[in-house]
């Protein structure tokens, strides 16, 4: 038996509303709110980055697992906003947790699915018996060019999952995994470029829906399951509309999706998006609930996971701050100028 023995989330307190961004660029806020189902998004403070959020989410995962962090044998961080071009995020994270020095670490990149890649590898390493505990983290301070449609959604957050094979510690058993991937140039960022570029509508049918729906179908076929077997389903959420539509195409009802659907108030946290949705589901799930997770990363590919909540989950849920608490409480709304300053988009003298 392999599964999650601890999980944690982190969402910054700053928010900016769609209306505040629209006001500057002369766009119609209502069309974004209605068309993409976006209301506001999280914004990192100037002293926050992928590493700081990964540390906070991982500390919650360790707290829920109740383990000695020195026993974590692998630490993997997935992000497309690692603070250093050369120097791992994982070393800082492992050191902050107290997992060093007997620990393997690596940083993953695959647009928005780098987080589930980290989870995928961490879970399989534990399953293979190579390490006792492995940590998979998805975290991003997403970039979106000013004035681009992405600016309404590119947000910040992190989710962390500790994997184990100890039956008495597992809060969500990992039943099966699946991966679906093709070479699709729908979204990219070249080296030394500040902002990503994307193929506009090409990011929809040929990229997101093709991979998410195929991975969803493939995952369920491999696990021998159908949509009605699941209490919850979490899909990558670049906007509000896409995951609801993908779920419908796969045969899911909205009630199965909404618990892990955070994007209308959170924005797209890229590598943290579907992992954060999973943390919100784990905060609420009951023993024996089945959970489908399908990520998406441009470039392009999707990872599928099927989890089953165990009777150990209930006790773990209250051991750390819940995802919806972080999403809904202690928010600070920013004006656009402060948002630019926080995101370091203002040209300054050295």
């Amino acid at each position: 038996m392999v599964g999650i023995c601890g999980y944690g989330a982190y969402i910054p307190r700053n928010r900016i509303k769609v209306e505040e961004i629209s006001k500057v660029w002369g766009t119609d806020a209502e069309s974004y709110k209605k068309g993409l189902m976006l209301e506001e998004k999280s914004v990192p403070s100037p002293d926050q980055d992928t590493i700081t959020m990964a540390v906070e989410a991982s500390r919650k995962a360790v707290k829920r697992a109740g383990i000695d962090p020195a026993l974590i044998g692998a630490v993997y961080v997935g992000s497309e906003s690692h603070p250093y071009a050369v120097k791992p995020s994982g070393t800082v994270l492992a050191e902050a947790l107290g997992a060093t020095p007997e620990c393997h670490t690596s940083d993953f990149e695959f647009a928005c699915k780098a987080g589930t890649e980290a989870m995928y590898v961490a879970s399989q390493l534990v399953k293979a018996g190579s390490v006792k505990y492995a940590l998979g983290v998805g975290a991003d301070t997403s970039q979106g060019a000013p004035g681009d449609a992405l600016e309404f959604s590119a947000a910040a957050g992190a989710a962390a999952f500790l994997f184990s094979t100890e039956k008495d510690k597992i809060v969500a058993e990992l039943i099966d995994t699946y991966a679906y991937m093709t070479d699709t140039p729908d979204f990219w960022r070249r080296e030394h470029m500040h902002y990503p570029r994307h193929g506009g509508r090409f990011t929809g049918e040929q990229a997101y829906f093709k991979h998410v729906v195929s991975a969803g179908k493939g995952m369920m076929a491999k696990a021998g399951m159908k949509p009605s077997d699941f209490a919850y389903a979490v899909f990558h959420q670049p906007n509000g509309k896409f995951p609801l539509r993908a779920g419908k195409m796969l045969g899911f009802e909205e009630r199965q999706i909404l618990t892990g659907w955070l994007v209308n108030k959170l924005g797209n946290t890229y590598s943290g998006a579907s992992p954060l949705g999973l943390t919100a589901v784990l905060d609420e799930a009951k023993a024996d609930d089945k959970i489908l997770v399908v990520s998406f990363g441009s470039g392009a590919g999707s990872d599928g996971f099927v989890f089953r909540a165990t009777d150990k989950l209930k006790a773990a849920q209250g051991l750390a701050e819940k995802t919806r608490q972080m999403l809904d409480e202690k928010k600070r709304f920013l004006e656009y100028g402060t948002y630019l300053k926080y995101r370091k988009m203002i040209i300054m003298n050295e």
């Binding site: 100037p46 002293d47 540390v55 500390r59 800082v92």
Partner: peptide
Amino acid sequence: VEFRKINEVGKSGVICYGYKAVL
């Protein structure tokens, strides 16, 4: 207490992490 960036040594230097309080 949360884990935060304390300062960065210019645009190319090391990033220094540490602790800060939040309410």
